[in-house]
């Protein structure tokens, strides 16, 4: 009973803090709620990376992107991303020429390997770029995919 009360208190305090921050204009409600979704908007790669991973500065290397050289159907392009870095906490996969370049972003728990495979849509021929984040910063890899029939509109 006592511990429940503490949890309740903690929750109330935490809610209060966020409330104050919102009130002070530090965090607008839009920021709080839409932050994650914002990265899935139209924009340049740099803008998208800033909102998805907090920085647009990334070093090339330590990230391998596997994807077909030619994708006949841009609606289904298999992509695998793997990194040899330790302590990777996040991975973002972008299709550089898509109107909304960010396809997906992954938060890795402890013990989860920096290795993700999925299938993405590509509107036209471009690089598939993967950016991984660890304690040292951002690292990226890329692979060009030639798209015969775009898979976004239509």
């Amino acid at each position: 009973m006592n511990s429940k009360r503490r949890v309740l208190l903690k929750g109330t305090l935490a809610a209060g803090t966020v409330g104050v921050a919102v009130g002070a204009g530090v965090l607008t409600p839009r920021n709080v709620l839409a932050e994650a979704r914002e990265a899935f908007q139209e924009g340049s790669m740099d803008e998208i990376l800033k909102s998805a991973l907090g920085s647009d500065h990334h070093e090339a290397g330590h990230v391998r992107v596997e994807a077909p050289n030619i994708a006949e159907n841009g609606a289904v392009v298999p992509v695998s991303v793997e990194s040899d870095l330790d302590g990777v906490t996040e991975i973002a996969i972008l299709a550089a020429a898509n109107s909304t370049p960010l396809t997906s972003r992954y938060e890795l728990g402890e013990g989860t390997r920096p290795k993700i495979s999925t299938r993405i849509k590509m509107g036209e021929t471009s690089d598939v770029v993967a950016v991984v984040k660890n304690g040292d910063g951002l690292y990226s890899g890329r692979k060009e995919v030639k798209v015969t029939v775009g898979g976004c509109g239509g």
Partner: peptide
Amino acid sequence: TAHWGPGIS
């Protein structure tokens, strides 16, 4: 946790 946009097939 995967955050997806409409760019996933």
